[in-house]
C-alpha cells in the first residue's frame, strides 16, 4: 500500500544517465585502506596458499599434496581433532560465557564487580592461552602438583588409572580459559541492550520469564550469539601457541601438523603444509557461509 507508493521510483525524475558511466565514484576512496588491507593480508596469502598447494617440490603442477592428506589416517584425524576441540570449546565457551555474562549484567552485581569482571575478561581472552597452559600442566599434568598430591595422599596413580590431561578434553579445558572470557566480553553489551520494557511488556501480556526468553530475549540475542560462537570456533580452530605449549605434539591438531610440515627438520614438506592450510581455509569458509545464512535468518527483523 502506501509504502510502495513512497518507495517506487518515478522513472521520469531519474537523473540523466549520460555522464555517470564515465565518472569515477570518489565515494569509494574512503574504503581504499580496507581493500588494501584485505588484499595484503587476506587475499594474497590465501592465493599463495592455494597456488603452492598445487605445486610440487620441483615447482610443477601436482595433486600430490592434496591426495597426501587423504592417505593414511593421521591428517584426517588431525582435522577431526581440531574440529572437535573447536566445536566443544565454541559451544561450551558459548554457553558458560553466556551464563556468566548474564550473571554479571542481569544478576544485580555491584558496579565495581561488574567492571572488574569485564576488564578481567578483556585481559584473559587475549592473554590466557600460553601461561594458563603451563599453569594447567603444573597442577594437573603428569608431574603436576595436584596429580602428585592425589598420588601421595590417596595412594592413587592417576596415570595408571588412565587419567591424562593430554586429551581433547584436557586441551578443551585449557582453551576454555580464553574462549569463556571472550564470550563474556561480547555478550555483556548485548545483554545490556535488552530493554527492561520488553520484559515488563511480556509480563503485562501474561507471559512468564520462560516466555520472555523463548520469544523475545533469545531471538534478539541470536545474531550476536551465533556470531560469537563462530568467532570462538575460528579462535580455537586456528589456535597454535596454546596447543603447542600445552602438549607439544601429543595432540595432533591441524595447526600443529602444519607447523611441523613447514618448520620441521624431519617432516619438512611445505607443499603438504600449504595443502593442509587450504583445507583449514575451506572449513572456515564453509562455517562462515553457514553462519551468514543462519545469521541473516536470525537477524531478519533488523532490516
Amino acid at each position: 500500500m502506501s509504502e510502495q507508493s513512497i518507495t517506487r521510483q518515478n522513472p521520469g525524475s531519474a537523473p540523466p544517465a549520460r555522464s555517470s558511466r564515465f565518472k569515477i565514484n570518489w565515494d569509494y576512496l574512503g574504503l581504499a585502506p580496507f581493500f588494501l588491507f584485505a588484499i595484503c593480508f587476506l587475499l594474497l596469502p590465501s592465493a599463495s596458499i592455494f597456488v603452492r598447494s598445487f605445486t610440487g617440490t620441483d615447482g610443477s603442477f601436482t595433486f600430490d599434496n592434496i591426495t597426501a592428506i587423504f592417505q593414511g589416517r593421521d591428517f584426517i584425524n588431525a582435522y577431526k581433532t581440531s574440529l572437535s576441540v573447536s566445536v566443544i570449546t565454541a559451544v561450551g565457551g558459548g554457553i558458560f560465557g553466556f551464563l556468566l555474562a548474564y550473571a554479571v549484567i542481569l544478576g544485580g552485581l555491584p558496579r565495581w564487580a561488574r567492571s572488574f569482571m569485564l576488564t578481567f575478561s578483556g585481559v584473559a581472552s587475549n592473554f590466557a592461552g600460553v601461561p594458563l597452559a603451563f599453569a594447567f600442566i603444573a597442577t594437573m599434568g603428569n608431574a603436576g602438583l595436584v596429580t602428585q598430591m592425589i598420588e601421595s595422599i590417596f595412594n592413587v596413580d592417576l596415570r595408571a588409572a588412565g587419567f591424562s590431561i593430554y586429551t581433547i578434553w584436557g586441551l578443551s579445558i585449557v582453551y576454555m580459559y580464553f574462549q569463556f572470557p571472550l564470550m563474556v566480553l561480547i555478550m555483556a553489551p548485548a545483554l545490556d541492550g535488552l530493554r527492561k520494557e520488553w520484559k515488563e511488556a511480556c509480563e503485562n501480556l501474561g507471559g512468564t520469564e520462560i516466555h520472555y526468553w523463548r520469544y523475545i530475549a533469545l531471538p534478539i540475542l541470536m545474531p550476536t550469539l551465533l556470531g560469537t560462537m563462530i568467532l570462538l570456533f575460528g579462535n580455537a580452530f586456528g589456535a597454535y601457541a596454546t596447543a603447542y605449549a600445552f602438549s607439544g605434539s601429543f595432540i595432533n591438531l591441524v595447526s600443529i601438523v602444519i607447523g611441523a610440515q613447514i618448520q620441521g627438520d624431519v617432516l619438512y614438506n611445505p607443499g603438504l603444509g600449504n595443502a593442509l592450510a587450504l583445507g583449514m581455509i575451506l572449513i572456515m569458509s564453509v562455517t562462515m557461509i553457514g553462519y551468514i545464512a543462519m545469521g541473516r535468518r536470525a537477524a531478519r527483523w533488523q532490516r
Binding site: 520494557e197 520488553w198 511488556a201 527483523w301 533488523q302
Partner: peptide, 16 residues
C-alpha cells in the same frame, strides 16, 4: 487484567 503502554521502545523488535 491490565494492559500497559510504556513511554517508548517497548515493542518487541524481533516481531512484526
Amino acid at each position: 487484567p491490565v494492559g500497559m503502554v510504556f513511554q517508548a521502545y517497548a515493542l518487541f523488535p524481533n516481531m512484526t
